[in-house]
Nucleic acid binder design. Sequence first.
DNA 1: GCTTAACCTGGACGC
DNA 2: GCGTCCAGGTTAAGC
Length: 298
Amino acid sequence: MEHPSLSYFHSLDLNGQPLNLDITLTCGQAFRWQKHDGEIWRGVVRDKLIELKSCDGRLLWRTFPVDDEVLVRDYLRLDEDVASIYARLSSTDRYLAGLIRRFHGLRLLRQDPAETLFSFVCSTANSIHRIAAAIETVAAQYGELVCEHASACYYSFPSVEKLASASTVAGTKSLGFRGRNLQLVAQQLCSRGAYWLDSLRNKTYSEARRELMSLWGVGRKIADCVCLFALDKDEAVPVDTHVRQLVCRLWGFDINGKSLTNGLYDRIAAAFTERYGLLAGWAQQFLFYEDLLRSRKA
DNA sequence: GCTTAACCTGGACGC
DNA sequence: GCGTCCAGGTTAAGC
């Protein structure tokens, strides 16, 4: 029997394209989603609160305070031919084909570049649940109230200007030393102009990555996360401790115990590009998610 | 170009 | 209860 409140949702036909919200929203690319009543995903995207549920090949959605179908479509990349991406990746690698069957419906998102950048600045030497908690703290303190819904207040991620000028961001206890980095990155973004970050979407992957890494506090990993999760650079391969472990396990990389130097980072990323080409980032996300589940069970 | 330490916090773990 | 380790990194110094 359909949940009574679902009658207030809009419905989109997915046209046979895969989408699994449980996996897509928890696979480590976004931090502001929570599941309610066992079936509805709720999260703040830009200046809207979004509720999502998928069933029978359709996506049920609604946004607050006003309807915004364009935002939902853009965020979930619904106009992308993901089935074709799966087919191309599956034909290159039997192991990956198995993961694509197992995690069918995992999608890359198109997130706000600034929020993605700041989120991964917070991720430095941090655990995923603490990153999510810290981001909610920052949003509640410095973001704008989006709406009140179901007895809770929801806040947007703070603007770059707000983070740059908020003198106490650097002292936010739960962020630790990351608070100072957050503010420094925000100040550098301000000095580069309002559209600098968004303009990177129109550059090549290597150009966008190089520009991001010119910011103090942004290294290879964070730059690649922004490229992959926010700038449509599907060839970007963020290399972290999970990816490093899985290339040891799957591809026999003899790097156990060695620190992740720039050279090693580039070698691992190159191995992905060699195997999966311009879809290396999609492949990375499937492999990463498997390793994430493995570490959660451990 | 590699290694190491420092940067903060808090949960997990062993004792 | 206490000490230690570690978590989706980056930077700078030393070699």
